[in-house]
Amino acid sequence: MDLPFYDRINDTLRNIEADGLLKSERVLAGPQQAMVSVRSHDVLNLCANNYLGLAADPRVIAASVAAANRWGAGLASVRFICGTQEIHKTLEAAAAEYLGFEDSILFAAAFDANGAVFEPLLGAEDAIVSDSLNHASLIDGIRLSKARRYRFSNNDMADLDRVLAQARTEGARTILIVTDGVFSMDGTIANLGAIADLADRHGALTLVDDCHATGLLGPGGRGSLAYRGVEGRIDILTGTFGKALSGSMGGFVAARRSVIDLLRQRARPYLFSNALAPAICGAALAAIDIARGPDGDALRQRLERNTSRFRAGLQALGFELLPGEHPIVPVMLFDAHKAKHMADELLSLGIYVTSFSFPVVPHGLARIRTQMSAHFADDQIDHAINAFAQAGRTLEIIQ
Rank of each mutant, 00 (worst) to 15 (best):
F5C: 10
T12Y: 06
R14Q: 12
N15V: 13
A18S: 13
K23I: 15
E25M: 12
A34R: 05
V38T: 03
S40I: 02
L44H: 03
R59I: 05
R59K: 14
I61N: 08
S64C: 07
A73F: 09
L75H: 13
V78G: 06
V78Q: 03
I81R: 12
T84N: 08
E86K: 12
K89G: 10
E92S: 07
A95Y: 12
E102K: 06
A110Y: 11
F111M: 12
D112I: 01
N114D: 10
E119N: 13
P120W: 03
P120V: 02
L122C: 01
D131T: 01
N134G: 08
N134D: 12
L144E: 09
R149W: 06
N155P: 04
M157C: 08
R162A: 09
V163A: 00
L164C: 05
G171R: 02
G171F: 02
D180P: 08
D180G: 09
F183W: 06
S184C: 10
D200G: 08
G203H: 01
V208G: 03
L216N: 11
G218A: 02
G220L: 10
G232C: 07
G232P: 00
R233P: 04
D235R: 02
G242E: 00
A244K: 06
A244C: 07
S246M: 06
M249Q: 14
G251F: 05
A255E: 04
R256K: 14
I260L: 05
R268N: 13
A279Y: 15
A283F: 02
I288T: 06
I290T: 01
P294V: 14
R302K: 13
L314N: 05
L314M: 06
G318N: 07
H326Y: 09
P327E: 09
M332Q: 06
L333V: 15
D335A: 07
K338Y: 04
D344I: 08
V360S: 05
G364S: 05
L365T: 15
R367Y: 12
R369T: 15
M372V: 03
A374N: 10
D379F: 13
I381M: 02
A384I: 11
F388L: 03
T394P: 10
L395E: 08
